[in-house]
């Protein structure tokens, strides 16, 4: 079983790197849009995942601190991104409220949870839930506009599809894991699903980069 999970992890690292490189190659196409900081987030993911893996394997100590910090920037960036691209003022305000809620939960975890040894589960769940909510608002705004005609070639659409599918699938797994977690139980099934979700998400990102066209 461990071997399968190891293969998955290596595939993930390769995908993180490929998507990051592709985001740099395609940068001239989207450098003047709200997505201009996207390579930074992919780099952050690559660095956080590599460090997480390194600490876990070499020092065999908890790597929560890396992920706890990483998620803060990750979620905040995507909330900001969706807030920027949505044109409906009402939806923008909803996202602003969402950002404040996420930050409040994060602050609460920062004070009451051990950042080095425990995962910020609650703020993560809130962040993921709010991200799904932002993506739904983004979809509604697209459906109400003529953007829907050229959506196939829109990078953000594919990124949102990847994120949407990943968090819809991963949120229940995270909740189940926060309820009870035991080594050597049936959890490996969920782990395989989780790892497959990451692959699906990154394949969506890849599709987005390969199909994207410059907006006229």
């Amino acid at each position: 079983m461990k071997a399968v999970l190891e293969i998955f992890q290596n595939v993930h690292m390769a995908l993180y790197a490929i998507v990051f490189i592709l985001s740099l190659i395609k940068y001239p196409v989207y450098k003047n849009t709200s997505l201009k900081f996207l390579p930074l987030i992919f780099l952050l993911t690559l660095v956080a995942e590599s460090m997480g893996m390194f600490i876990n394997k070499v020092y065999e100590s908890p790597n929560s601190v890396i992920y706890n910090i990483y998620y803060f920037f990750y979620f905040t960036f995507f909330f900001y991104l969706f807030m920027k691209v949505i044109n409906v003022k009402k939806y923008k305000n909803y996202i602003k409220i969402g950002i404040v809620i996420f930050w409040l939960f994060y602050l609460r975890d920062l004070f009451f949870t051990d950042i080095f040894n425990e995962s910020f589960i609650e703020s993560y769940i809130v962040g993921a839930g709010l991200l799904i909510y932002c993506i739904i608002l983004y979809y509604i705004s697209i459906l109400q506009s003529s953007k829907v005609l050229v959506i196939k070639n829109d990078l953000l659409f594919w990124i949102s599809v990847g994120l949407f599918l990943f968090y819809i699938g991963y949120l229940p797994i995270k909740i189940i894991r926060s309820w009870f977690y035991k080594e050597n139980s049936f959890f490996w099934i969920l782990l395989i699903i989780q790892f497959s979700l990451v692959i699906v998400m990154y394949l969506c990102f890849l599709t987005g980069f390969l199909w994207m066209k410059k907006k006229s």
């Binding site: 819809i168 797994i173 049936f186 099934i189 969920l190 699903i193």
Partner: peptide, 11 residues
């Protein structure tokens, strides 16, 4: 876990 494992891919 089994229910989640079936429900997640289907959904």
């Amino acid at each position: 876990i089994i229910i989640a494992a079936i429900a997640i891919p289907i959904s």
